[in-house]
């Protein structure tokens, strides 16, 4: 079908060219320095596929291997955070009553947005976003904020101390995840919250930079 082809007899509206639309969308991603983007339900298999494609791309670009390793590490921690904690979640069967909190992965899908990019100055970034409950914002903000400005050595010994402690209440993984991410983000990091009014949820984004 040519772009000029009209559907039916309605004279006015030129049907949208879906290829043009997709090309513009792709251009929008490129304008934002994005190399890879994923939005939707996130699984561990998706993480491996996305991560290995990212590593292949970085290797073809002859990116410093130290940078590539740090990016992969941050990607894994952040994406596994989405898989375990995103408040945008779909349960198998009854929406209101997931069988038990412990019986997780096969019974639920959690959603998020994963972006990898390279800015004009050559620095890379990995950015992950997902919904959190409003009540989690303070705890997240505190956990990440207190790591700002700490040097690599300090973060390394904090990590070891955190590894020897039991995971905090309600955590399915290591609380040491944030320390790992901040330690690997050699170019610094940003994070932020955007409350979605009337839902009790807040959109959360963490972006790590690498240089």
């Amino acid at each position: 079908m040519s772009p000029e082809t009209h559907h039916g007899s309605a004279p006015a509206a030129v049907p949208p060219n879906i290829a043009e639309d997709a090309f513009l969308f792709r251009g929008e991603l490129q304008c934002r320095d994005i190399i890879s983007a994923y939005s939707g339900p996130v699984t561990d298999d998706l993480l491996s596929g996305f991560g290995n494609a990212m590593r292949a791309k970085l290797e073809l670009d002859e990116t410093d291997r130290r940078v590539a390793r740090s990016m992969f590490s941050v990607l894994v921690e952040q994406v596994q955070n989405i898989i375990r904690y995103s408040s945008e979640v779909q349960f198998a069967g009854n929406d209101d009553a997931p069988a038990a909190p412990e019986s997780r992965l096969p019974h639920e899908l959690r959603f998020g947005l994963v972006l990898v990019g390279k800015r004009g100055d050559g620095t890379h970034f990995v950015s992950c976003s997902n919904l959190v409950d409003d009540g989690q914002v303070g705890q997240l903000d505190g956990a990440i904020g207190k790591l700002r400005g700490l040097d690599r050595k300090t973060l390394g010994s904090m990590m070891k101390d955190a590894l020897r402690r039991e995971p905090p209440e309600g955590s399915r993984g290591a609380s040491v995840g944030w320390i790992t991410v901040v330690r690997e983000a050699t170019g610094g990091f940003d994070y932020g919250f955007y409350p979605i009014s009337g839902t009790g949820k807040t959109y959360f984004t963490f972006r790590a930079y690498f240089d």
Binding site: R69, F72, S73, V76, E77, Q80, M159, L163, P167, G173, A174, V176, G177, I179, T180
Partner: peptide, 9 residues
């Protein structure tokens, strides 16, 4: 060659 934080524990 790589391990995540939960493996580190």
């Amino acid at each position: 060659v790589y391990f995540n934080s939960s493996s580190a524990r």
